[in-house]
Design a binder for these strands. Structure first.
Lengths: 185, 185
DNA sequence: TAATTGTTTCTGTTTTTACAGAATTAACAG
DNA sequence: CTGTTAATTCTGTAAAAACAGAAACAATTA
């Protein structure tokens, strides 16, 4: 047991509590975020029981939380030699983590809206009686979100080193665009 | 009154109801999102009363909602000639909308975490007794989020046409990076 | 300054969400 | 098979959030 009780260390504790608190603003409940924080800081796979003990949550809660985190694919089950129980580990590659969370949130929070907008925009295009600004604004919203979604799907598949390079470039990426001095950095 | 009751049009209604529903997943309550949707579709500034009538919400709710939307800077108060009441309009430029929402969410949901991580990382660097993986992971998390934040602040100030160009490039932006065939599109 | 109209804040209720503990189901070992 | 332990699902309760209506507050104009 290399980290008997992570919560004993004041900074680890501060991290876990803060993460839990912010989780409520990030669209997951405190328990889910705390479980994630604990696993992120752990140097070994943890069984559900240990999570229960360390965070003082109900067993059922931890179970639900782990399922949710696996839904985001930032936590996975692993088997530990000589122990029957499931163990869990968190993704520690932060790029991977970001990509997986954003992919799942897009799926849950954006895609359904794009689908609806597509439908509405199509109907509005044929509906002569529709208020013109309604037609125009729904259509523009659809195009905008669809464009962003397409962009995202492309960029998310770029190799990690490329993403890092782009990130480091920051605003300087604008200077690389050919055919126009009009892009100031 | 060019749009007497936007809710009478089935597609406008569907948009507003869906927006309200999704709002609850996007971190604002249904009322706030519905008010926003209504204003976005309206071709003229609306006074709070009209919003109350059309959406069937309590006056107090609409007031709170408008304040929240002004907090995101995607709705603003305007004065209408010959009417004493405040009127409200939504931002219709979708790039502007995205930028303002993301700026505010970063301020609320990301910046406080970066601040805490900075503090923890600094303390952990000096704390010889800290579990090494805790020190390392908190530090990496801090660097990662700080890098993303810096990138965001730079990109968000790029002129809109530049952003549009970059968006349209999609994954092809990787080809512009100098000094490396290693970036495949 | 009093009356009117509009806006915000406050208070209690309803609805929703998070959660603990119990019950159930599943997996395994003897 | 059967006893045992782990894991999930179910159910009731507690906590939090959203909301309506009333009250308080502000601004405007007669």
């Amino acid at each position: 047991m290399t980290n008997g009780a992570l919560l004993d260390h004041p900074d680890a504790k501060a991290f876990i509590l803060h993460w839990g608190e912010m989780g409520t603003h990030w669209g997951v409940n405190r328990s889910v975020a705390q479980v994630h924080a604990l696993l992120y800081l752990s140097d070994r796979p943890l069984p559900a029981d240990d999570i229960v003990d360390q965070l003082g949550l109900a067993r059922s809660n931890v179970s639900t939380g782990l399922k949710e985190l696996q839904g985001y694919a930032i936590v996975r089950r692993v088997h530990v030699e000589g122990d029957r129980r499931d163990h869990f580990v968190a993704e520690t590659d932060l790029w991977e983590m970001l990509m997986r969370i954003s992919a799942e949130r897009k799926r849950r929070e954006i895609d359904p809206t794009i689908a609806l907008l597509a439908e509405l925009a199509e109907r509005l295009a044929r509906d002569k009686s529709a208020p013109p600004q309604v037609r125009e604004r729904v259509t523009r919203m659809h195009e905008f979100m669809a464009t962003l979604a397409t962009w995202y799907e492309q960029v998310r598949h770029l190799p990690k080193p490329t993403l890092v390079t782009l990130m480091k470039l920051g605003a300087k990426v604008a200077r690389l665009i050919p055919g126009g001095k009009k892009h100031k950095a």
